[in-house]
Simulated assay, not measured.
Amino acid sequence: MQVTRVARILAAGAVCSLLLAGCALNERPGDAPPAASVLSGTISATGASSQVAAQEAWMAGFQTANVRVTVNYEPTGSGTGRANFQAGASSFVGSDRAFTDDEIAAGGFRACIGDELVEVPLYISPVVVAFHLDGIDTLDLAPDTLASIFAGRITRWNDAAIAADNPEVALPDLAISPVHRSDPSGTQETFTRYLALTAPDAWTHGITDKWPITGGESAQGIAGVKQVITAGRGTIGFLDASQASGFGQARLLVAGEFVAFSAEAAAALVENSPLREGRAAGDLVFDVDPASAPAGSYPIALVSYLIGCQQYADAGTAALVKSYMTHMASPEGQAAAAANAGNTPISEGLREKVLAAIDLIRVGTEEP
């Protein structure tokens, strides 16, 4: 699936209800006509499927305000998106993790002049543990229990560990079918980070965007995982919150209490996380530690990044990427995404840092 200029069309007229967030950025009766935009051209990206609903809203608003601009976004998954960006096949990338220190040190970003990047966290959302069990809408799952399910040690829903977490639930004697991503995924890395840091004895496979063990079921992208969970009985997987409606959902143990997911609870985790030290001025990366989640927060929060070059060879590309990222970071852009995707808008303090990072984007011959 590719999200393209159709987002602008859907944002207008009688089908406005399909993209309420985007429509909020369009003209209302009585509004003065917007000033004509001087921007024109096309920019394209591939990347995180978690961002699809947010990208629909962002593109609708941006393309409505800039009628000669086309933004294309293809949800290939974060790993493929980063590879495409490094190969110079896209103008920017959406990724559920930032480039690592080693990846940046290795360089070779063919989309850029030089290897300095702008990486800004513009999509923050809970990662929901979703399951399909007839008649059960909510389960409490402690870290060791959840990790043992995905490690293949707990194989039936009426296992004693699950029963201990849920003493008042009539659990079925049914096989568990864990579902994971077949493609490299930042959402998957966020999930394995939670397992590795909160249940290291039960999950011994580390933090990885590629599923590290055999067994269970696999599917391409968030859409594929969602389809497999829907089609099966006894299935369990992990999904971005924007895709998790209609499933049973797990509450996770934090500071002695089980916490349901919400945008606010995910924000509490991220807001208590430091920015990584030693990064360049335009490289804003959070160090999120689910094992240190404060009481009341939700411990699996996806911090998804928009990534571009600090220096582009083409002036038109630099202007479009800079303007599009600025729109995504704006209060209007963040509100539109939240209305369409249910994610957490960034705080005012973080927005100030994000806009300063985006302001570093320029054509290669320009001076900072």
Rank of each mutant, 00 (worst) to 15 (best):
S37V: 01
A199R: 12
E332R: 14
A54T: 04
G237C: 07
S185H: 10
S347K: 10
W157R: 13
L146P: 04
G224A: 08
E189Y: 10
F238C: 10
L133A: 05
A12H: 12
L25C: 13
L252H: 02
P33Q: 01
G246D: 09
G135P: 03
G308A: 15
R233F: 11
S304F: 07
A241L: 07
G79Y: 09
R181Q: 09
S330G: 15
S49T: 06
A313K: 06
T204Y: 02
Y73N: 11
A202E: 04
V69D: 10
G296N: 10
S347Q: 02
L18W: 14
L360H: 04
T70I: 14
D359W: 04
D289T: 04
P143R: 11
H327N: 11
V321S: 01
T80G: 08
P143D: 02
G237I: 09
P200F: 09
L122S: 08
W211R: 09
V52E: 14
A54V: 09
G316S: 06
G224V: 13
E189I: 07
T138R: 15
D96W: 00
N158C: 04
A170K: 15
P368A: 15
A265I: 00
C16H: 15
A21D: 12
Q188Y: 07
L306P: 00
T155I: 01
F99W: 13
G186H: 01
S50C: 08
A45T: 11
V120F: 02
R5H: 14
P143I: 09
Y305R: 02
V225C: 07
T155D: 14
L117A: 09
A105K: 14
I300R: 15
L117R: 01
A105P: 03
Q311P: 05
F92G: 10
T155L: 05
E271C: 02
V3R: 06
P33S: 03
R97T: 04
D201G: 07
K353N: 02
S49R: 05
Q310T: 15
L275G: 06
L171M: 06
L306R: 12
R251T: 05
E103V: 12
Q51M: 15
R351D: 00
R279C: 12
V127N: 01
L306N: 13
Y324T: 00
A266W: 00
D96G: 15
G216A: 08
G88H: 01
V285Q: 01
A170M: 13
I176Y: 04
M59C: 08
E103Y: 06
D96M: 00
N272Y: 06
L197N: 13
A280S: 14
T230R: 14
K210W: 07
L253Q: 04
D31L: 10
L174R: 13
P29H: 02
T190K: 07
T326H: 11
L320K: 01
A14W: 11
S262A: 05
Y324A: 05
A337F: 08
I136A: 08
G22K: 14
A151C: 08
W203S: 01
D165S: 12
P274F: 07
I104Q: 11
P143K: 05
G135F: 08
